[in-house]
Computed example of a mutant assay.
Amino acid sequence: MIENNLKPGSFIIIGYNAKKLVYDFVADKLGYSAIKLINHPDCKIIENCDIIEIDNVREASYFLNLTPSLFKNKFLIIDNFHLANIYAQNAFLKTFEEPPNYAYIFLLTPYEDRLLSTIRSRAQIIRITKKEQRTSNKNLELRIENLMKMNYGRRLVWLDKELDDIKEKPEIRQKILEIINYFFIGCNELLKKEKISYQNLELLKEIKFKIEQGFPNAKILFENFLLSL
Rank of each mutant, 00 (worst) to 15 (best):
M1R: 07
I2H: 09
N5L: 05
L6T: 14
L6A: 14
L6D: 09
G9S: 03
Y16S: 09
Y16Q: 08
Y16A: 02
K19E: 00
K19W: 06
L21I: 15
Y23K: 14
D28R: 13
L30A: 09
Y32E: 06
S33F: 07
I35H: 08
K36N: 08
K36T: 04
L37Y: 05
I38P: 11
N39M: 12
P41E: 05
P41Q: 03
P41H: 04
P41F: 04
I46D: 12
C49W: 05
D50T: 08
N56W: 01
V57I: 15
V57C: 00
R58P: 04
A60P: 06
S69H: 07
K74S: 06
L76K: 12
L76E: 00
N80K: 06
N80Q: 03
F81E: 03
F81Y: 11
L83V: 05
N90M: 10
N90P: 12
A91W: 10
K94P: 15
E98P: 05
P100M: 04
N101F: 12
Y102Q: 09
A103M: 07
Y104K: 00
L107Y: 05
L108A: 05
L108T: 06
D113V: 12
R114H: 14
L116H: 15
S117G: 04
S117P: 07
S121Q: 05
R122V: 03
A123H: 14
Q124K: 10
I126L: 15
I128V: 14
I128P: 10
K131N: 02
E132L: 11
E132P: 15
E132N: 13
Q133F: 08
S136R: 02
N137C: 09
K138L: 15
K138S: 13
N139V: 14
N139E: 11
L140Q: 03
E141M: 15
I144M: 10
I144H: 03
E145V: 04
M150N: 06
N151Y: 08
G153R: 14
G153K: 09
R154A: 09
L156H: 08
V157R: 10
W158L: 09
L159P: 08
E162A: 14
D164L: 07
I166D: 06
I166F: 01
K169L: 05
P170E: 14
E171C: 00
I172V: 11
R173K: 09
I176P: 11
I180C: 04
N181V: 01
Y182F: 15
F183L: 13
C187Y: 13
E189C: 03
K193V: 11
E194G: 07
E194D: 03
S197H: 14
Y198W: 12
L203H: 03
L204A: 02
I207W: 02
K208C: 02
F209P: 04
K210E: 11
I211S: 13
Q213K: 11
A218P: 05
L221Y: 10
L226I: 01
